[in-house]
Amino acid sequence: MNFLEVNNLCAFYGKAQALHNVSVDVKAGEIIAIVGANGAGKSTLLDSIMGLTTVTGDIRMEGKSLVGLGSAAIVSGGVGYAPERFNLFPYMSVQDNLLVGAFTARSDIERNLATVHQLFPRLEERKNQETSTQSGGERQMVSLGRALMTSPRLLLVDEPTIGLAPKVCSEIAVALRKMRDDLGATIVITEQNANFAMTLAERLYVLESGVVKAQGTVDELRNDTRLTEAYFGH
């Protein structure tokens, strides 16, 4: 049994269908990347796992269905999410943003906070700063930190490098690897930057117009034309 199994998932925003029979499997402790161009449905896939869209099909984590549970139950079931637009609380301090993430994992606060500060020392230095005044890189750190405060066993990270300077991208990559290696989290990222995805992930899924076009290990897909087609068209 895989850690996460998404089977024949169709997702809808109102009447518009954004995903068409998408199936994705993730093994425990794996880092996989969903790659594809803008509008391919990457964010929708992660939103759907979090219970934020209307779906048909099935999503199972450790054999237990997540469909219809609602976001709060999915989070307390062990899924953390760092969305593309961060969705931080702009007029709250860094520390309070992190503490909101602890809403369902209150007994782990001290341990999780220490882990977050170890991964991102800047968040401890700037713990009283409002997130509305922070740079994109810092906000990404708060977003990842908030997700870690939920004590996730599965971490979903949407476009972790979008709009960030190369140096910050490397910091984020190091942190994500530590989250897997040291904390044992299974990680699903989405990426427009295929190079970043290939340096971080073990396997890739190529998504195009809401359909899985290709899947495989990084080595299998490195020279696959379907990967370039998904980005640049035919």
Binding site: L52, S71, P83, F89, V100, G101, F103, M149, T150
Partner: peptide, 12 residues
Amino acid sequence: MDTKGAAISGVD
């Protein structure tokens, strides 16, 4: 401040 942000933090 952000309903989606709250929901993905485990707040209903």
